[in-house]
Each structure stands twice: as structure tokens, then as C-alpha cells.
């Protein structure tokens, strides 16, 4: 218990530190002139989006990993990423990329709905869901490659946008916060039920084969979370896999604890990644998705090799 408290303290201070760093690094007089403009127009929206995208991805990864009992499950499992990518590419081709994040959001939701309804409500099985999602991902990503090849003049900007970043979404801070808080509230209602799903699914309690009901519920919830993440930060791979795994390594598998752990860890990861992507080769920007994978992968492999027994079991 003491150990968990300490880990929470570390996570929280990391979060605050990265928050302050992202907001105020390199600004001489934060509240005057151009600096105020930069703060209100660029940094605060970016920080908000990082928190929203990070928490959403981590939470949705946690849900899917728990219900599928598979550490490989990631938020884009349900064909979300390619659906979102397809939406973005189409919006670039048809509308010159104006408000492409809303198209990403819609694409993500539509593909998730398609996959979930195809995998069936009454005879729902998570394996079926994963396989259908995989097929949709392959299908949609091939279409994306084809569209990019057909339009080489826009290939550069399409590839860039598909790697994800915070400059994309034209959504007001208020709307984003509102959506995020609503989703978090719904998650908080259902999170304790995630604890049931970590039990062996063969332990049948008669008259209560309702575990499937919760499975579908969490899949739908995670699709919404991921779509919101896509809306605010584009398609960021990896964050949704490593955050839940890392937090589980550190904090055990009580969903109630993991809920807060994932929100903190996800936001911190994206804030740090955002900071690095903005400042490493200043004034140029490294695509956010690239940074997430580059700092995330070694960090995660290190933890896995050092103390990965718990999740590999």
C-alpha cells in the first residue's frame, strides 16, 4: 500500500512537472505581448489536448487489455486507427484538409460501430472482434496507401498529418473539456465493473452470464475514448499499449487504482512527448507520433525486461 502511494506521488509530480514545462518553457514574460498570445493560442490548447488524448488512450487501452486478457490489445483494436486515417485522408483530398480532425473522429466512430456490430451482440466474442478489427485495419490502411500514391502532391502533408499531432484539431477548449469530463464520468461509473472482467471468464455464475454485456459496454466506451483521442491528437500509436501495461506493472490490477494511474501516466507521456517534439530541433517540429514511439519503446522494453513477469504470466 505504501509502495503504491509512493508511485502515485511520483506519477503526480511527473505530471505537474511536465505540465509546467510544456506551458512555460522558453517564455520570458508569460503573460504579456506575444508570449500571452502563444500561451493562450498554442500552449494551453496543446496541453489540454495532450491530457485528453493521453488519458483517453491509456484508459481505453486498459479496458481492452482487461476484457481481452491480452497485453497486446490496443485502443485501435477495433479498426479505429485506419478508419480515422481514412477519414482524414478523404477530408484532405475532398476538402483540402479543413477541419480534418472531425473527419478522423467520424471515421473512427464509424469503423468502431462497424466492427462491433459485425462481431455480434448476442454471440459476442472478443477474439472475433480482434480479428474483424484486424481485417478492417488492413483493408483501410491499404486504401489509405493507395489514395496517397494517387495524390503525390499531397503525400507529404498526408503522411505528416497521419502521424498525429496537436496542431490539428480546431476544437474549442471548452467543448473538448466538456466532452472529456462527460466521458470520464461515464468511465468512473463503470470502472469497478472492470474488476469482474479480470476474473476467469469460465467461472460461470448462473443466471449472470452478463459478462458479455459488460464486454460490449467497455468496447463501446473505449471506442468513444479513442475517437476523442483521435479528434484531439490524430492517430498516436503505442501510447495506448504501453501506458496501461506500465501502470499495471507498477500498480497491480485493481481497475479502480489503474483508472487514476492511467490518466496520470497517459497525460504525462504525451506532455513529455509534446515537449520533446517541440524543443529537440527547435524551431522545427518532430511529428508527435514519432516521438511517442521513440521515447516509449525503449522505456517500455526496459521495464518489461527488468520486471515483466507479472504481465507475461
Amino acid at each position: 500500500m505504501k509502495k503504491k502511494g509512493l508511485i502515485f506521488l511520483i506519477l503526480f509530480s511527473g505530471f505537474i512537472l511536465s505540465l509546467l514545462l510544456s506551458l512555460f518553457f522558453g517564455l520570458e514574460e508569460p503573460f504579456r505581448g506575444d508570449s500571452a498570445l502563444i500561451l493562450s493560442m498554442i500552449r494551453i490548447p496543446a496541453v489540454l489536448k495532450a491530457i485528453v488524448a493521453g488519458s483517453c488512450l491509456a484508459l481505453s487501452g486498459m479496458m481492452l487489455q482487461t476484457i481481452s486478457k491480452n497485453p497486446l490489445a490496443d485502443p485501435y483494436l477495433t479498426g479505429l486507427s485506419s478508419g480515422a486515417g481514412l477519414g482524414i485522408v478523404l477530408s484532405i483530398l475532398l476538402f483540402n484538409g479543413i477541419n480534418y480532425s472531425i473527419f478522423g473522429f467520424l471515421g473512427a466512430l464509424i469503423s468502431a460501430c462497424l466492427v462491433i456490430s459485425l462481431s455480434g451482440f448476442s454471440k459476442f466474442s472478443i477474439t472475433k472482434l480482434i480479428l474483424i478489427g484486424l481485417s478492417l485495419n488492413l483493408f483501410a490502411s491499404s486504401v489509405i496507401s493507395f489514395l496517397i500514391l494517387l495524390n503525390p502532391d499531397k503525400a507529404y502533408s498526408m503522411t505528416l498529418i497521419l502521424t498525429g499531432g496537436f496542431s490539428s484539431a480546431d476544437i474549442s477548449n471548452k467543448t473538448l473539456c466538456l466532452l472529456f469530463v462527460i466521458l470520464l464520468f461515464i468511465c468512473a461509473l463503470f470502472i469497478p465493473k472492470l474488476n469482474i472482467l479480470r476474473l476467469d471468464s469460465r467461472l460461470v455464475f448462473q443466471n449472470e452470464q452478463g459478462a458479455n454485456k459488460f464486454n460490449i459496454l467497455f468496447v463501446i466506451l473505449s471506442a468513444f475514448l479513442t475517437s476523442l483521442a483521435v479528434y484531439s491528437a490524430g492517430i498516436l500509436g503505442f501510447a495506448g499499449i504501453i501506458c496501461p501495461l506500465l501502470v499495471r506493472l507498477l500498480l497491480g490490477s485493481d481497475a479502480r487504482i489503474l483508472f487514476f494511474g492511467n490518466i496520470l501516466a497517459g497525460s504525462t507521456l504525451l506532455l513529455i512527448a509534446n515537449f520533446i517534439s517541440n524543443n529537440l530541433i527547435y524551431p522545427m517540429q518532430i511529428p508527435l507520433g514519432v516521438v511517442v514511439a521513440i521515447i516509449g519503446a525503449p522505456f517500455f522494453v526496459f521495464f518489461l525486461v527488468k520486471k515483466g513477469g507479472a504481465i507475461l504470466k
Binding site: 498570445l37 502563444i38 500552449r43 524551431p283 522545427m284 511529428p287
Partner: peptide, 14 residues
């Protein structure tokens, strides 16, 4: 900037 088409930070542009 040492590139053909650099992606820059909005705040740098400001």
C-alpha cells in the same frame, strides 16, 4: 532553416 519544407512550431512563427 536547413530543410526544404520544415515543419515549424506555431509559437516560433509568432
Amino acid at each position: 532553416l536547413a530543410a526544404y519544407y520544415p515543419v515549424i512550431l506555431e509559437e516560433y512563427a509568432i
